[in-house]
Design a protein around this nucleic acid. Structure first.
Length: 494
RNA sequence: GCACUCGUAGCUCAGUUGGUUAGAGCGUCGGAUUGUGGCUCCGAAGGUCGGUGGUUCGAGUCCACCCGAGUGUACCA
């Protein structure tokens, strides 16, 4: 098969290019989150994008092939490697590999891209950025409580006002207890429990009625596609629905509601005890004012969590480009994963952590108007009026740069009009003009493009526009730097 | 994966019951303006009508299959 056609310049599905404004926003967000994590005593570590697939634990069950959800490739020695799909599994590998060197508990944070090979959707990409903090080797729920409070601090550091977000906390042991209570504990009901958990997880999407359908016979979606339910009977459904609705703004009340529901289950009771302990720690620190809340409907990650689970949710709605209301929902989450490091080692290694979805949060912050969308000003552009004088223009650029002013000489091949347009597109604050007239007089002209654009609104005739040369000054060449500095001073950030 | 909807210029879209050479607006580039962003005017570039096959004297239009996209749903470590 030959490839005589030109390749199409196109982005792979589910991936995005980032523009200067996006990069600036993400960098600022990362800086703010980093400050919070460091304030709490976490330290950075970086692991590669690729791990051996078995270290990630993503081989298909009973097969010698990686899970389809991860991007995988085979090394020249036939070993399977995969792009990381989260930052937790690589951390577990890192900790297990460096166990003796690391202080325990080990408090670490990591930021970077992760990859998921699944169908992209609005706000869902195959490459996105996460920013995690984890505590490894801390068995008590004090570590979990701390991470919840730190998550709340992150939200506020990012400019999300108190009351417009909530960190919701639940415990997998309580969920397990409920399963036991309705008689679907035990190995032979594992599949059914999964269906029930998934149904609970859909509460914010479908509401209580939708969950009720999914717990029973099943649910038909808008396109007519049918989702098979868990097949619970009315009594079982009532217990689950009651459990999901047991949450209250008052943590004591929530816990009192939960206790009788799992009274018959030792696991469930242990889970409620843990929630009570977290609630007490949260209250002692003053975070029980709506920032951190016990909520039985949080399910979160169906596989490796073993205890407390948490989710950061945005509570406000925004309007997207098409005028539709959008709820951002979950922008981060985490929980306790006591089994993940011990997978590599004989001994148990408790761990808990939290992950911020930077990419999704960035979209939310834009909608909230918390960040300006612009990419800022461009450099000062020195126009090339006379190609033979390039050295002279380059010398001006050097003077500006030596003074700490971002500047460049126009390097294209077009005429003056195109050069000014170029500077305009770069959002340059001003351009430097020196033709033969100015050169002979030992002068330069400086055109303030921002002020010029403002003045242009009052000019309608082409002659006037050209003759008046709005916002343009002439200064001795020796005063170039000082004059540019004066103009830049008018525009903060230029 | 399943279901529904949709593919015409870079973007948004027209295109008559199937009928000559497939159009418009916006954007891009050039000119009017030897050396000035905007406005205005003039001009140009840009399309295998998603692909393949079929029906027909004739297909952007009708049919089949394929590919791609969007939305919902499933999965989501």
């Amino acid at each position: 098969m030959t490839r005589d056609e030109k390749p199409k310049a196109r982005l792979p599905r589910g991936f995005v290019d980032r523009h200067p404004a996006d990069i600036k926003l993400a960098d600022e967000m990362i800086g703010k989150i980093k400050q919070v994590y460091e304030l709490y005593g976490f330290e950075p570590v970086e692991t590669p994008l690729i791990e051996y697939t078995d270290a990630l634990g993503k081989f298909l069950p009973d097969q010698d092939r990686p899970n389809e959800g991860v991007f995988s490739l085979q090394d020249d020695d036939e070993q399977w490697m995969s792009l990381r799909y989260d930052l937790t599994a690589p951390l577990a590998r890192y900790v297990a590999e460096n166990f003796d060197k690391l202080p325990k508990p080990y408090r670490s944070y990591r930021v970077g891209y992760v990859f998921r090979n699944e169908k992209p959707g609005p706000g869902r990409f195959r490459q996105f950025m996460q920013f995690d903090a984890d505590t490894v080797g801390a068995p008590t729920v004090a570590a979990d409580a701390e991470i919840c409070m730190m998550a709340a601090d992150c939200m506020e550091a990012l400019g999300i006002p108190r009351g417009q977000y909530v960190i919701r906390v639940n415990n997998r042991k309580v969920l397990d207890g409920i399963m036991e209570a309705i008689g679907i504990g035990g190995d032979d009901n594992a599949g059914r429990r999964l269906t029930v958990l998934r149904a609970i997880d859909k509460l914010d999407k479908f509401g209580p009625e939708g969950v009720r359908l999914l717990l029973g016979a099943g649910r038909m979606d808008e396109s007519g596609d049918f989702t098979k339910g868990a097949g619970l009977d009315e009594a079982q459904i009532a217990v689950v629905i009651g459990f999901v609705g047991a949450g209250s703004v008052d943590a004591d009340l929530t816990i009192a509601n939960l206790r009788p529901l799992v009274a018959a289950s030792a696991t469930g009771t242990a889970g409620v005890d843990e929630l009570a302990e977290i609630a007490a720690l949260v209250r002692a620190a003053g975070y029980d004012d709506g920032r951190v809340r016990i909520d039985p409907s949080v399910v979160r990650g169906l596989e490796y969590y073993t205890g407390p689970v948490y989710e950061a949710e945005l509570l406000f709605e925004a309007v997207n480009d098409d005028g539709q209301k959008v709820r951002f929902g979950s922008v981060g989450g985490g929980g306790r994963y006591d089994g993940l490091v011990s997978r590599f080692r004989g001994e148990p290694v408790p761990a808990t952590g939290f992950s911020v979805g930077v990419s999704r949060l960035a979209a939310a912050l834009k909608a909230l108007g918390k960040v300006e969308a612009g990419a800022g000003y461009g450099p000062v552009v020195v126009l090339v009026m006379d190609k033979a004088e390039a050295a002279r223009y380059q010398a001006m650029v050097a003077r500006l740069r030596a003074a700490g002013i971002r500047a460049e000489m126009y390097l294209g091949g077009s005429g003056m009009k195109a050069q000014v347009k170029y500077a305009d597109k770069r959002n340059s604050p001003c351009v430097i003009i020196q033709g033969s007239n100015e050169r002979d007089a030992g002068e330069v002209q400086i055109k303030d493009l921002i002020e010029g654009a403002r003045l242009a609104k009052g000019i309608s005739s082409n002659e006037e526009w050209r003759e008046s040369r709005p916002a343009q000054i002439t200064v001795p060449e020796a005063d170039l730097v000082a004059a540019v500095r004066d103009i830049l001073a008018r525009y903060p950030g230029a």
